[in-house]
């Protein structure tokens, strides 16, 4: 049976009180900060691509609440992450240093993901168990099931995060991965970031049902649909799912209803398939930063001066990461042949 969380909330802020979720005032302020960092970092990468300094950009703008809410439910360093290409804010939230993330956009020699071999936004970060993705979507789902299977086989209580779009949920990988994980009750959380579009194809042309998570019942695992623009609601359902997995009770399929504020990628022009009015409406009604800001003000956790100060602090971090990463050396051409096979 699917659980539906905070979907009909009429509020323009957030549906839950953070104290009831075991979060401190500082935690909530930190969540806002991380969301803002994700947004500003993403905007910077977009500019770098337009300037010709990065070849490719794919945006997570609009999805920050879902990513931050999810990230905080995991234990970085212990748990494993198989994110998809819009999960920039999640990577920042679990602790990948902004400078190191920026190296990926500049494809520098010391890029921790791959030394400039992998595309931007195909994250990889060994110290925090972040596994690099390949470009065919949702292929990370069977792998995540295998990663979690290894944890279970060794009797460890680490949990694996894997995310994908609702577009990726149309692939056979989704079915095979979820079925396998449910059969073996492995500790993995399947997170569908449903932003309504698979590149240009709207969700109603991708599936005949309203919710991806309604399919969970067919696999024998809990399914949860949550307002992905509400960082606290996402945190609440993710925490419950992660706790279940850690107790050995198997996987959960969580669907975050979210929005994509930008085009699919820097190779896409979304004016061809959606109106500017739609974007304006999403920005006015669905921007997770606006919602979180309203909550902080409403709860008396922050004032205008604080928001200004945070904005300044975040821009300093983004500027520092950009300037530092740009100054790092490029890979040497002869290193193109390295790492194909193990080399003693």
């Amino acid at each position: 049976m699917t659980e539906y969380v905070a979907l009909d909330a009429q509020t323009k802020s957030l549906a839950f009180d953070h104290r009831e979720l075991g979060l401190s005032d500082d935690d909530v302020r930190r969540m806002y900060e991380l969301m803002l960092l994700g947004r500003r970092f993403d905007e910077r990468c977009e500019i770098l691509q337009r300037q010709g300094k990065a070849h490719f950009h794919i945006s997570g703008q609009g999805q920050e609440a879902a990513q931050i809410g999810a990230a905080l439910a995991f234990i970085p360093g212990k748990d494993w992450f198989h994110p998809y290409y819009r999960d920039l804010a999640l990577l920042l939230a679990i602790g990948v240093p902004p400078r190191e993330l920026m190296l990926g956009w500049f494809a520098r020699a010391n890029d921790p993901a791959s030394g400039g071999r992998q595309m931007p936004a195909h994250w990889g970060y060994r110290p925090l168990n972040v596994v690099t993705a390949s470009s065919p979507v949702s292929t990370q789902i069977p792998q995540a099931a295998g990663i979690a299977y290894a944890h279970k086989l060794r009797g460890e209580d680490a949990v694996t995060y894997v995310s994908f779009g609702e577009g990726g949920a149309s692939k056979g990988d989704f079915h095979e991965g979820l079925n396998f994980a449910a059969i073996h009750k492995v500790p993995v959380i399947f997170v569908c970031m449903n932003n309504g579009y698979a590149i240009s194809v709207s969700a109603n042309k991708q599936m005949a049902i309203e919710n991806v998570a309604d399919r969970a019942a067919g696999y024998g695992m809990p399914g949860v649909v949550v307002d992905g623009q509400d960082m606290l609601a996402v945190y609440k359902v993710m925490k419950e799912a992660v706790d279940r997995a850690r107790r050995g009770e198997g996987p959960t399929l969580v669907e975050c209803k979210t929005v994509r504020l930008k085009a699919h990628s820097s190779d896409d022009d979304d004016r061809l398939y959606r109106s500017r009015e739609e974007i304006q409406r999403l920005r006015a009604e669905k921007d997770p930063l606006v919602r979180a800001r309203a909550y902080l003000l409403e709860q008396g956790l922050a004032d205008d001066a604080w928001f200004e100060e945070i904005e300044k602090k975040i821009m300093e971090i983004v500027n520092d990461a950009t300037d530092w990463a740009e100054a790092q050396p490029l890979p040497r051409p002869e290193d193109a042949m390295k790492h194909v096979y193990w080399d003693r």
Binding site: Y149, L153, E176, G177
Partner: peptide, 24 residues
């Protein structure tokens, strides 16, 4: 350690990739 799987060639190989990356 001798695991029967569903008829799912994609997840047999895909999960093996994941398990191998995670030390098995």
């Amino acid at each position: 350690r001798v695991r029967d799987t569903p008829i799912s060639e994609l997840v047999i190989a895909g999960a093996a990739v994941g398990a191998a990356m995670n030390g098995l």
